[in-house]
């Protein structure tokens, strides 16, 4: 299930340009979406999920253009969506909630529906607490209900918006492994701020900032772009000079500090090139496109 996006723009209320001409091809498998706060990730995902209408541009899902309300409904039939802000009905239990969602997703055959719900409860390890009301669930448990809900209709296209935010490390690893297992025979679009999640699960990724896609390709391609811009700088203690973004500072065993920087350290600093990580690649992209004030300020 390929998703192709061409010249997609979204303007909120005639003022906020959330997407400015997005071009992107999302192939089968896991696809990661990175970008700072306000980059437009959620907006893009909402449009793909048929929740919002684009201001202009085209979206193709499986080669078919999504234009009318009917097209959107067709996409929704094969879609699983986990929103960033996951609201649920506090007074339903997980089992009831999934059953209700399954009815709304058109799983009409009662027995098959029940079986599906039980299987998913098992998959996300919530069987033991499935009869407790959702308002008693922790954040991580709610996320798991959320992903189970998204999988009810065995979607060909799975869109998950920052699913690992707020999860403890173990839970996060379990979660992303679950996602990669699922990606075998479907398209999974995953947005996150945690670069590590993408590094571990996605071959392909895109980075967005200010409503534009500034990189799209494989991790290897991104690392290749970044190579030559990552340095280790050792100093007796003071901060090194130059035009770069610092990504790490570690005290050295024999005194002094070692800084890891992305960019160009000043002439005369003791800098040795380093092998880039995905995080360095992200920092490099954001530096190049000068739209990550939170990082530039470091």
């Amino acid at each position: 299930m390929n998703v192709t996006i061409e010249n997609l723009t979204k303007v909120y209320g005639g003022k906020v340009h959330a997407l400015n001409g997005v071009n992107l091809t999302i192939p089968n498998g896991m696809f990661g979406l990175l970008g700072p706060n306000g980059a437009g990730k959620t907006t893009l995902m909402r449009i793909l999920a048929g929740i919002l209408h684009p201001t202009s541009g085209t979206v193709r899902v499986g080669g078919r253009e999504v234009k009318s309300e009917r097209d959107r409904t067709e996409v929704k039939r094969i879609l699983g969506y986990l929103p960033q802000e996951l609201g649920m009905y506090p007074d339903l239990s997980a089992r009831e909630f999934l059953d209700y969602m399954a009815i709304l997703k058109g799983l009409d055959e009662t027995k098959a529906r029940r079986a599906r719900v039980e299987w998913l409860l098992e998959t996300v390890a919530l069987k033991d607490v499935a009869n407790r009301k959702l308002k008693t669930y922790s954040g991580g448990m709610k996320r798991r209900v959320g992903i189970a809900q998204a999988l009810l209709n065995d979607p060909k296209l799975l869109i998950v918006d920052e699913p690992t935010a707020g999860l403890d490390p173990e839970e996060r690893i379990r979660f992303r492994n679950l996602l990669s297992e699922l990606a075998g025979n479907r398209t999974v679009l995953l947005s996150t701020h945690i670069v590590e999640d993408i590094a571990q699960t996605c071959q392909q990724l895109a980075a967005m900032t200010s409503g534009r896609v500034v990189f799209s390709g494989t991790i290897i391609e991104l690392l290749a772009q970044t190579r030559g811009h990552v340095w280790l700088v050792a100093t007796p203690g003071q901060k090194p000079e130059g035009d770069f973004t610092m990504v790490a500072a570690t005290p050295l065993a024999g005194g002094g500090m070692q800084y890891r920087v992305v960019g160009q350290p000043a002439q005369g600093m003791q800098a040795t090139p380093a092998e880039p990580t995905l995080e360095d690649g992200y920092v490099w992209l954001m530096r190049e496109h000068r739209a990550a004030p939170s990082l530039a300020a470091v």
């Binding site: 929740i51 929704k76 969506y81 609201g87 709304l104 058109g106």
Partner: peptide, 18 residues
Amino acid sequence: REPALELQLALPAQYRVT
């Protein structure tokens, strides 16, 4: 009031019908 608004909107069943 709709606590699960985004989920409802992403369903094939039209939310406004619901």
